[in-house]
């Protein structure tokens, strides 16, 4: 059953990725509409306490790119990056909070923690994307997004440079759509409020 996608409603897009995920983002970001009217949160596994990622990604888009700060209100048109070595949680009042609790799936930030709390806060107004990775993180969180009525997209494992993470989500039946990078870009641009749903 193809899930019907209602345009003009998504307030938050959350993307999680691990090994091979960054390359996808570097391709997606330059092609995202610059009049984006939903917020974007990126939760990427990586090593060390880097602020490098923010610089790297802000070079790829005219949209505002910044590290998510604790208690910050989530605003449309901004791309937020989960800081290294903290879990990024989303509160019901649509603000961020940070958490330094145990790693989940050997990861901090853990994609599951962000996906699950975002699903609670945004419900059907949330779209989640899970990219390439060698880790089981994100699959459970994506399922919770789906169960809360949100839209869930998984990178096509055939295309992903590491298929394990997308595969885990598919096996949990957490994916509404399995798409290539090119298709993901098309869909994300169509989720924008300002355009009418077109043919897909």
């Amino acid at each position: 059953m193809e899930k019907e996608i209602f345009m003009n409603k998504y307030e938050l897009l959350i993307i999680g990725g691990s090994a091979g995920g960054l390359e996808v983002l570097l391709e997606v970001l330059p092609q995202l509409r610059t009049d984006l009217d939903y917020a974007v949160v990126l939760v990427m596994h990586r090593r060390g306490g880097d602020s490098l990622l923010t610089g790297l990604l802000s070079d790829k888009t005219k949209l505002a790119v910044k590290e998510a700060e604790e208690k910050e209100a989530i605003r449309p048109g901004v791309i937020y990056i989960a800081p290294a070595d903290y879990h990024l949680l989303i509160e019901n009042d649509k603000t961020f909070s940070l958490d330094y609790s145990e790693k989940i799936h050997y990861s901090r930030p853990a994609i599951d923690a962000s996906f699950e709390t975002a699903a609670e806060a945004y419900g059907p107004l949330l779209a989640g994307v899970l990219l390439s990775g060698a880790n089981a993180d994100g699959a459970e969180g994506l399922l919770q997004i789906k169960q809360a009525g949100g839209l869930t997209i998984v990178q096509d494992p055939d295309e992903a440079s590491v298929s394990y993470m997308p595969q885990q989500a598919i096996e949990k039946n957490a994916a509404d759509k399995i798409l290539t990078t090119r298709q993901i870009i098309g869909l994300l641009n169509e989720l924008n409020h300002s355009i009418k749903p077109g043919n897909r």
Partner: peptide, 9 residues
Amino acid sequence: YSKASLKRR
């Protein structure tokens, strides 16, 4: 306390 963390715990 921030609710999201408490609830997860």
